[in-house]
């Protein structure tokens, strides 16, 4: 009958109706092409072509930041590509976590092998931190103050993963 009400009133009817509830599945991938821009392009190009980690030195406060950017985050002075400098590929772990769940790599869409170590690394001479993979994935062996150095991929494409990971420098920064 057109216009008849389909009501869910009694407790029993409600339970039976709940069994019929549906979900609508969406399987849309949204691709993005982010412009690295002027400063990001310098960072990734140097990483790819020369195994160099680039930062930027503020021409006012003298602090060095990684990666390079258009404004000093401390004093908001405009910086230029001439302020870009190579920074050390060695540093000290200042924070870490071992990831122990399946993570989908957004660059590839594939699940990354886990567990894997990550750390906030203070590169020598740099004021801020670089977050990256640690070679060590046994969290009982990772500690703040641990000294690490960047290991570059042989085949580099201009992505953060051109640094394969930071490996422990044995004999330095022991607990």
């Amino acid at each position: 009958m057109v216009g008849a009400k389909v009501g869910v009133t009694s407790g029993r009817a409600k339970q039976e109706f709940n069994d019929e509830l549906l979900r609508i599945t969406m399987m849309v991938d949204i691709p993005y092409n982010f412009s690295a821009g002027t400063f990001g392009s310098i960072f990734f190009r140097e990483l790819k072509d020369s195994r160099r980690i680039m930062g930027i030195k503020c021409n006012k406060c003298g602090e060095i930041f990684v990666p390079p950017r258009v404004l000093c985050p401390e004093c908001l002075v405009e910086l230029s590509i001439d302020d870009c400098i190579e920074v050390s590929s060695e540093g000290t772990v200042e924070g870490f976590t071992v990831v122990n769940f399946p993570f989908i790599d957004p660059n590839t869409g594939k699940v990354r092998n886990y567990p894997y170590g990550t750390g906030n690394i203070k590169l020598d001479g740099v004021s801020n931190l670089l977050w990256h993979f640690l070679k060590e994935s046994d969290y009982s062996k990772i500690h703040n103050g641990m000294r690490v150095r960047a290991v570059f991929e042989d085949k580099r494409v201009g992505l953060p993963s051109d640094i394969r990971y930071f490996e422990t420098i044995e004999g330095e920064g022991e607990k």
Partner: peptide
């Protein structure tokens, strides 16, 4: 249509800087 020479933040900075200069102000 496309601004590959600027990240979105670099692009926004260009407009912000223009407005600040227009008002003779800074951050």
């Amino acid at each position: 249509a496309s601004k590959p020479h600027q990240s979105f933040a670099e692009m926004l900075y260009e407009a912000v800087k223009a407005a600040l200069n227009d008002a003779n102000m800074w951050f």
